Computed example of a mutant assay.
Amino acid sequence: MGTVSIREVAARAGVSPGTISNVLNRPERVAPETRERVMRAIRELGFVRHGSASTLRAGQSRTIGLSVIDIGNPFFTDVAAGVEEAASELGYAVILGNSAGSRDKEERNLLVLAEQRVRGVLITPSDEDPSRLDALRDRGISVVLVDHPAHRPDQCSVAVNDIAGGQMAASHLLSLGARRIGYVTGPRSIRQCVDRRQGAEHAVAAAGLDPEAVIEDVEVPSMTARAGQQAAASLLESGLPDAVFCANDLLAVGFLRALLQAGVRVPRDVALIGYDDIDFAAASAVSLSSVRQPTHRLGRIATELLLDECDHPDTHVHQQVMFQPELVVRESTAGGARPEERESP
């Protein structure tokens, strides 16, 4: 692919070269419609500005990129620790990018990584569109999906079986006698939320019950502790179910806090389970049952696959690694009363 200049991008987008520079360096100064027009021109032309001249002179970079959707979530912090540890052992540095679930921000982050001529990119994508990842691969940059399964044989990925995890969580709540389960979830655009809900449906159906009658969805805009508190406020107003399954532990921690502030007894009045088993789960006021993911190992294995592809392209074998989650039972569900045994608080 030939080198594309900023002037060519500007001509394609119908703006000045200075506007291109602002979109790449100070996007908040550019109107959203203009930003999108520029980004479309960049994609169409395959433009990548030169990053480090010293890297180019050296021939090959010793850096890789990591793009996650929420670095504020301890799950991704633990994954990043595994990535950095493995990369450091193999003589590589890591450039971290946080997309905050935004496709536009993720696209800008990937452009920066390409500019820096990283050898490869580890990414938890913000959506299912593979085009921007294919563009990286077309430039010779290896890509491995993290916490997201690949659906093609020429792509490495490392993920956790979230359908199985959702089934574990719901089966556990059903075993306590729950017959109404609230499912507190982030946006349906997040694959993990959909898969965990599907697993819960499997558990309910296996118990001979109707998933649509048993599972009550509470969708929140973000998977944070504050959103968990908001979900709890909604259910406290409409009527609490027997049990609640939160799609991650941050939601569950916020949900638990709101319940305790309202005088609801956990697990006697409501059994509660989260997902990820972050450190906060065991340390919360009522220790939180959760579905554990091997976060650190997830990051390590993904990095090893990426660097094997970078350093040994002729012998590398693409792998789609799928870990199995583990149910961890703590106070928030242990000994939870059956619905008919609950008393008013």
Rank of each mutant, 00 (worst) to 15 (best):
T63P: 00
R57Q: 12
G51T: 07
G51Q: 04
F76D: 11
R40N: 13
F47M: 10
G65E: 00
A41W: 02
T55E: 02
F75C: 05
R57E: 11
V48I: 02
G65P: 01
T63C: 14
T77R: 07
L66Q: 08
R37S: 05
R57P: 07
T63F: 15
S67H: 07
E44D: 15
V79E: 06
R40T: 15
T55S: 03
E36C: 12
E36K: 10
V38C: 04
V68W: 10
V38W: 06
D78F: 13
A41R: 06
I71W: 03
E36D: 14
G72N: 13
T63V: 01
G46A: 08
S67T: 14
R37H: 03
A53H: 15
L45W: 09
L45A: 09
H50W: 09
V38G: 03
V48P: 00
A58G: 14
V48R: 13
V68P: 08
L66P: 03
G46N: 13
V38S: 06
L45I: 02
P74R: 02
N73K: 11
A41N: 00
A53L: 07
R49T: 02
Q60Y: 06
V38K: 02
T55D: 09
R43P: 04
I69M: 13
L45K: 09
S52C: 10
F75T: 14
F75W: 10
V48G: 07
I69Q: 05
F76L: 00
H50P: 10
R40I: 11
P74N: 04
R40C: 07
I71C: 01
L66H: 00
R40F: 12
F75Q: 13
V79T: 10
R43G: 13
R43A: 15
L56E: 08
L66E: 03
A53G: 15
F76K: 00
A53V: 14
S52K: 05
R43L: 09
V48T: 04
S52L: 08
L56D: 02
V68G: 05
F47A: 03
I71D: 06
G59Q: 00
H50V: 12
R49F: 04
T55N: 01
R49A: 04
A41G: 06
G46T: 05
L66C: 09
R40K: 12
G65H: 08
G51E: 01
P74V: 14
R57N: 07
T77E: 13
E44W: 10
T63E: 09
S54G: 12
I71Y: 05
I42T: 07
